[in-house]
Simulated scan of single mutants.
Amino acid sequence: MQLYLPIAELTVNILLFLGVGGAVGFVSGLFGVGGGFLLTPLLIFTGVAPAVAVATVAPQIVASSASAAISYWRRRLIDEKMSLILLSGGMIGSAAGVYVFRALRTLGQLDLILGLAYVTFLGIVGGLMLRESVGAILRSRAGRPPAGRRPGQHNWVHGLPLKVRFRRSKIYVSILPVVALGFGIGFLGTVLGIGGGFLLVPALIYLLRVPTSVVIGTSLAYIVCTMALATVLHAIANGSVDIVLALLLMIGGVIGAQFGAQVGQTLRGEHLRALLAIIVLAVATRFLLGLFLTPADIYSFEVLGALP
């Protein structure tokens, strides 16, 4: 079953992209990460132009994340207060990211920046998460208590002003790092087409000490709102959202996310983090190889302006 994508200018197999959307939706519900860090590379690897892939992934992330977020909300596993404060910075970051994306596309540097950024961010975050999660698993098997802070031990975050109590997350911390996280991840998620959940989840766990069970639902709620804004801005400012492709990915993503959310609630936190770290590192490795391998088409042509 073949279908023509008007914006991507490709003829694709419908079942293939429904399957891709379903698989990424499953990952989204399982880890609470939106799935864009995996879906955007998959689209690029299948021949979709990077600009179209990044913009089109945003509505798919909204659909799959919303589906999974509803499941977590019903179980009261979302910190609504933290989600709102994250969004106060995330909305501004998403808007800024769309216009930086447009500037990079105009300069012709989008493909290179995307490749370098994926290798850097995915490699660093995946490596740190894998190290920590494997250590937690080994400690658990050895019967040792999990590594944690001793009473009275704080990091620099706890010295910041404007502290707020997040009762659902059981923490008392300044809103400044929460707003900053929202802005930074909203910006990067929009520019790279990744949703930002794979950055937000470890940041909330390791920086703010939010429980893993609450982090996933809170991350999903944040991603739904920021990616919805990114979708609208990408469509208006860049005109690169392929709605036909997005619908295929959405259908598969919504179904996959429900299964992922159910499975995610049966696994231990350290096991979830280890699986996510392995997937993140695998995607980073694929992008790293792409930076050094010679492409099949060495030259490309583009019309820069109308002929006189």
Rank of each mutant, 00 (worst) to 15 (best):
R150M: 12
G19N: 08
R139K: 10
S88D: 06
G90E: 04
A257R: 00
V62Q: 02
A69H: 01
L204E: 02
A96K: 05
A66N: 02
V241N: 00
L122R: 06
S65H: 07
F166L: 14
R74I: 00
A136S: 11
V157P: 03
L84Q: 09
L128V: 01
G195Q: 09
G239L: 01
L275V: 09
A246L: 05
Y118W: 14
V173Y: 05
E9S: 10
H158C: 01
G182E: 01
G25E: 01
D242R: 02
M129Q: 04
I205A: 15
R102D: 14
G182A: 12
F301Q: 13
S88C: 15
A180P: 02
W156G: 01
L245R: 03
F287N: 13
Q258R: 06
I61V: 15
A261I: 02
F45E: 10
V134L: 13
M1C: 14
D297H: 15
F198E: 05
V119Q: 07
G32E: 03
G90N: 13
I14H: 10
G260V: 00
L188S: 13
G189L: 08
I194W: 06
A117I: 01
G35W: 00
E132S: 08
L30C: 00
L289D: 11
F187E: 00
S174F: 06
P146T: 05
A306S: 10
A96R: 04
F292R: 10
A53M: 06
L87W: 08
L162S: 11
G115P: 06
L116R: 04
L160M: 13
G269N: 13
G193M: 07
S213P: 07
L199G: 09
F26L: 11
F183M: 10
V201A: 15
D242M: 04
V303W: 14
A95Y: 14
T285V: 14
L114A: 04
I85G: 02
G123E: 04
L229H: 04
S169C: 10
G260N: 02
L207C: 08
G193Q: 03
A274D: 00
E270G: 02
L181Q: 05
V100L: 15
I279G: 06
L304T: 13
F292E: 06
G269Y: 08
T285I: 14
I185Y: 06
V52H: 01
F26Y: 05
F301M: 13
V119E: 11
I194F: 07
R139S: 09
I85Q: 08
V62I: 06
D111R: 12
L107A: 15
L10M: 12
I251C: 15
T285E: 07
G186C: 06
S133N: 03
P50G: 04
S83M: 11
G264Y: 00
